[in-house]
């Protein structure tokens, strides 16, 4: 057997895809590190959005539910971190953890009645949640400082060690995202993850096998809220400033795009989608006043030719099933 044959047998399509992905990530980071400047910030935000999308993927991808309101939990994380560190002088890491806990409790309170709804009704209820949170962040000026927002939010750190250098920030955020993806992968292939995917396939079928559908949907909602809150806090500590606009409707649209471009329901898709959708505007910027059209055109082409997301590229070219539930 030749070396090429051995490699081919051992790796398969996914192996090649993983190697290509690792090389692409390494090259991208090396390039951004070398070039520095604005691209570092773009990639930092991509990592933060990645964390948000990995969480959203639990609820929308694995469990197959619709939520247009996860930005509410990101706002809880962002404002929680900002208020606790700026107003009360808490340690950023403690503020992040406490904000996540608050978001988790809020997810239980909101999710328990809301998740009895299905399909469009659930989507509308969660959409309302996002809008309410936005209004609260604008109107409750004593707490949130309204449109002024919070500035001077300290960078993330533990004790005397603070992450102030932009390159170090990117490394830390990449490690946090990798950790989030790892947890997502472990859970997806666990008994819990299989139950979520069963619910996504058919709720009645899952219930008939003994899966307590409402409880699992709530758990997925809470996990998504925890990730969203962490992303909100990371944004606050990375950028140092937050306002209601950061967690507005734009966030919902951007994260949905990332999720579908990368591959909803897949492990790597949310992270890949976050990086691609964040970098794409920089790539098409050279088209000048046509950049919005170019951005939209590239996204549409991606969704046409890779409808299940870029993370499923590995499966392209593999033999397709001949029969799908046909007679016999």
């Amino acid at each position: 057997m030749t070396l090429r044959a051995i490699i081919s047998t051992k790796l398969g399509a996914y192996g090649y895809f993983a190697i290509a992905l690792a090389v692409a990530i390494a090259l991208l980071f090396a390039w951004v590190f070398f070039k520095g400047g604005y691209l570092l910030t773009v990639l930092q935000l991509a990592m933060i959005y990645g964390v948000f999308c990995v969480g959203l993927n639990f609820f929308m991808g694995y469990t197959g539910q619709a939520s247009f309101g996860q930005n509410a939990f990101a706002a809880i994380g962002g404002y929680g971190s900002a208020i606790l560190t700026v107003q009360y002088g808490w340690e950023p890491i403690l503020a992040l953890v406490v904000s996540m806990a608050v978001a988790g409790v809020a997810a239980v309170v909101v999710g328990y009645p809301t998740l009895r709804l299905r399909g469009h009704y659930l989507a509308m209820a969660t959409f309302a949640l996002g809008l309410i949170t936005y209004d609260v962040s604008v109107q409750w000026t004593d707490l949130t400082q309204g449109y002024m927002g919070y500035s001077g939010i300290p960078p993330l750190g533990i004790g005397p060690f603070t992450v102030e250098d932009d390159k170090l920030k990117l490394v830390c955020l990449a490690v946090i995202l990798a950790l989030g993806v790892w947890v997502s992968s472990r859970l997806r292939h666990s008994r819990f993850g299989r139950a979520l995917r069963a619910i996504s396939s058919t709720e009645l079928g899952a219930a008939a096998l003994g899966i307590r559908v409402s409880r699992y949907k709530l758990l997925a909602f809470i996990i998504a809220a925890l990730y969203a809150s962490a992303a909100g806090s990371l944004f606050a500590h990375t950028v140092g400033f937050i306002s209601p606009e950061v967690f507005g409707l734009q966030m919902v649209v951007v994260t949905f795009t990332m999720l579908y471009v990368g591959g909803i329901g897949t492990v790597l898709g949310p992270a890949i989608g976050a990086v691609i959708a964040s970098l794409l505007p920089e790539v098409v910027r050279s088209t000048g006043r046509f950049q919005d059209i170019a951005y939209a055109a590239v996204l549409i082409l991606m969704l046409i030719f890779v409808p299940k997301g870029l993370s499923t590229l590995a499966s392209i070219g593999r033999r397709r099933p001949i029969k799908a539930g046909a007679e016999g």
Binding site: R191, R194, A195, R197, S201, T202, G205, L209, G210
Partner: peptide, 16 residues
């Protein structure tokens, strides 16, 4: 069946 899952995963869910 949970059509996107493998045979093994379907069976594992049966034993849930």
């Amino acid at each position: 069946l949970f059509s996107e899952m493998t045979v093994q995963e379907n069976l594992q869910l049966g034993a849930y």
